[in-house]
Design a protein around this nucleic acid. Structure first.
Lengths: 112, 112
DNA sequence: CCGCATCCATGCGGATACTG
DNA sequence: CAGTATCCGCATGGATGCGG
């Protein structure tokens, strides 16, 4: 896995990582990892996010199969978001990254 | 040093992940994980990268403590780059991400 | 051999306002 | 409640050429 043609391997990881980059994706995924949640509740919990950014992020994550959108045909509208199987499988990798970030001085210092 | 850090980290993981995002950082780190390497050799191995992008990426990675630059006072010039301790500690997390990316259909299909 | 300076294009993150 | 529609600034990626 580490060996062999590295560039091929890197491509997918680069794609994956760029999918997750940006200011909001991880916080969103994190909230979703706790279970299904509605749009406005999610917006409340992800501090500072606006409608447009929440909508876009969710759409992207859904388009790439990390998040599932479930719409209940009710009035008033009721939509829930949750992690897909792929999304759930991603969590362990993120946990590793979190662990690393916490134990890395430069990461904790340079919060300018 | 390069200015304009995109998002200050209200979250360390977000900061960490954004540090790694972009087209070249991971391929570079990947090559470096094999051991120290010279600038031009690195440029040869990271297909398609230009001087400016290689230089910038290395500077950023160095500024954030993931990469170390070693300059030998010789003529002709001799510079080597290698992973720092923090950089080496990051590899396991990346391995997880690679594993995930490889096992995720959408990642392998949708190279947009 | 190992870079930096300059300039340019693009896309992303975001503010504001509106809708079914 | 759950979103869209516009518009915009600026960081980021990149081509090309120069310099120690």
């Amino acid at each position: 896995m580490l060996e062999g043609n590295l560039y091929d391997g890197s491509c997918q990881v680069v794609t994956a990582l760029n999918l997750l980059s940006g200011r909001w994706k991880l916080p969103i995924l994190w909230k979703l990892s706790k279970g299904g949640i509605r749009y406005n509740e999610l917006k409340r919990q992800v501090r500072g996010i606006t409608n447009i950014m929440l909508t876009r992020s969710l759409q992207e994550l859904e388009a790439h199969g990390l998040v599932e959108r479930i719409q209940y045909e009710e009035n008033p509208p009721h939509v829930e978001y949750c992690l897909s199987e792929a999304g759930r499988e991603l969590i362990p990798a993120l946990r590793e990254l979190i662990k690393w970030a916490r134990n890395t001085p430069h990461m904790t210092e340079q919060q300018k």
